[in-house]
């Protein structure tokens, strides 16, 4: 599969999976989602990392968008004030965590998959 296709495929499937995972509340499961789908469709660690990172970020963004429209930024700003952090930075951290969880799964899974195939050969 051409790298661009594997990138897009990983991104789309991970995005859907991450959205479902976020909806369930078990955020950490994104690690497994990133690992599984990057390992399935990507041969390049870099591509897998980027596609799952973006899928996690966009999944969170799509999930919280309706909440942003009804005042989630107010809540984040207040929480940020209490914690001494800007609300926008908290928002960015939320997206980053949501991206890094599957991306870290990808970083582990893809090299292991490559080694596994090497061994098979």
């Amino acid at each position: 599969m051409r790298p661009i296709f594997s990138f897009v495929l990983t991104f789309i499937i991970s995005l859907a999976a991450n959205y479902i995972i976020i909806s369930s509340g078990y955020w950490y499961l994104e690690i497994i989602s990133g690992a599984v789908f990057s390992a399935l469709f990507c041969r390049s660690t870099a591509l897998g990392f980027i596609s799952t990172l973006l899928s996690g970020i966009f999944a969170a963004l799509i999930y919280v968008y309706p909440l942003i429209q009804i005042g989630a930024m107010n809540i984040l700003n207040v929480t940020g004030k209490i914690a001494g952090i800007n609300g926008s930075i908290l928002f960015a951290i939320m997206l980053l965590i949501s991206g890094l969880l599957p991306a870290s799964g990808a970083l582990i899974a893809i090299p292991l998959k490559i080694q596994f195939y090497k061994k098979q050969k």
Partner: peptide, 12 residues
Amino acid sequence: LNPESGVVQNSK
């Protein structure tokens, strides 16, 4: 910051 169970839900 958990989008499902964290503070953003309180916007509802």
